[in-house]
Design a protein around this nucleic acid. Structure first.
Length: 312
DNA sequence: CGGAGCTCCTGGGGGC
DNA sequence: TGCCCCCAGGAGCTCC
């Protein structure tokens, strides 16, 4: 569920509330939380202890906090030390700022790792479904972690070129929704915003990328940027307590969703009931009138229409 | 090498 | 009421 707008909401919270804080110690909860760390928990703790947290960065759904030498002030522009705390929220990962929330006074629910800060507060990474992870990784010359090296620019980066992405999109030989979910083409889009973007652009998710017009490809990408910008302004999309900001507060954008999770409800554009279909072992929601489905391929319909003719 | 499918995981909710 | 199964899905991995 955390897609780009939700991750950005978390990033802003981290920037506002933990920048400049010194990490005094680290504690561990669920064993799956620390991943991609060659030296495991010991290395994770060693690389964090005594570091100062910098200004959180993000690309797509990847989030990181650059680390600084003690005494350095990231707000003053002091350089990071070439490393960062990197996180992917997966399905249900959260960062929570403040004292432990468990009434018994112990670790918060679904605790993954806890960073104990010099001012007495804690920064917890919690994750119910354990698809998320954290590690301490090196930063490259552009200030991005190597763990996110394969991830394409997201639509809100200066280096994002929508025409170039539209071109690459149309050279793919797959379906448009699959391509939108591929983080190496354009990053930050997940199932919710893929469906919302396709609805806004009036393109069916099963349309072939190599059959889209340039106008359609650009339209889908523009819709993705637009819907995610609006979601960010609303603080992200929350269906339940799984996605929340650094203080556990929900966003409001779910009230603005046109199709996602709305099977049977009227399409906001034409009134036709929204349809749900199974796709890639999950769900897609779309308007069957606004988003006309592609014709089924010959191979699926069987050899009934006409006998093969020589020469073609 | 690009595309497609499998798999990791847990709690909530619906059905019986 | 209680149990069981389904469902949510990001992305790395493997296979073709």
């Amino acid at each position: 569920m955390p897609e780009l707008p939700e991750v950005e909401t978390v990033r802003r919270g981290l920037e506002q509330h933990v920048t400049g804080r010194l990490v005094t110690d680290v504690s561990f909860g669920h064993p799956r939380a620390v991943r991609r760390q060659p030296g495991g928990r010991a290395e994770f703790r060693d690389r964090l202890r005594g570091r100062v947290l910098g200004i959180a960065g993000r690309r797509g759904k990847y989030l990181w906090i650059p680390l600084h030498a003690p005494g350095h002030d990231p707000r003053r522009g002091d350089d990071h030390d070439g490393s960062a705390l990197v996180a992917h929220l997966g399905m249900s990962g959260q960062f929570r700022v403040g004292a432990p929330t468990d009434p018994a006074g112990g670790d918060p629910p679904h605790a993954g790792v806890g960073l104990h800060l010099a001012d007495g507060t804690d920064l917890w990474f919690c994750d119910q479904r354990t698809f998320g992870w954290v590690c301490v990784d090196d930063l490259d010359g552009d200030g991005r972690p190597t763990a996110a090296g394969h991830v394409a620019p997201d639509p809100f980066e200066a280096g994002y070129d929508p025409d170039a992405v539209a071109h690459r999109l149309r050279r793919r030989r797959t379906e448009i929704k699959r391509a939108l979910l591929d983080q190496t083409l354009v990053s930050g889009i997940g199932n919710i915003y893929a469906d919302e973007s396709l609805w806004r652009a009036q393109v069916h998710g099963r349309r072939r990328t190599d059959a889209l017009t340039a106008r359609q490809a650009r339209s889908v990408l523009a819709a993705a940027q637009q819907v995610m910008a609006q979601a960010m302004a609303a603080g992200g999309t929350s269906f339940d307590a799984l996605y929340v900001d650094v203080f556990g507060e929900s966003g409001w954008f779910d009230r603005s969703l046109a199709v996602y999770g709305r099977a049977g409800e009227p399409c906001p554009r034409c009134g036709t009931p929204i349809r749900r279909e199974s796709f890639m072992n999950r769900s897609s929601w779309f308007c069957p009138v606004c988003q006309s489905a592609p014709r089924r391929r010959k191979a699926e319909t069987g050899p009934t229409t006409r006998p093969s003719a020589p020469g073609g």
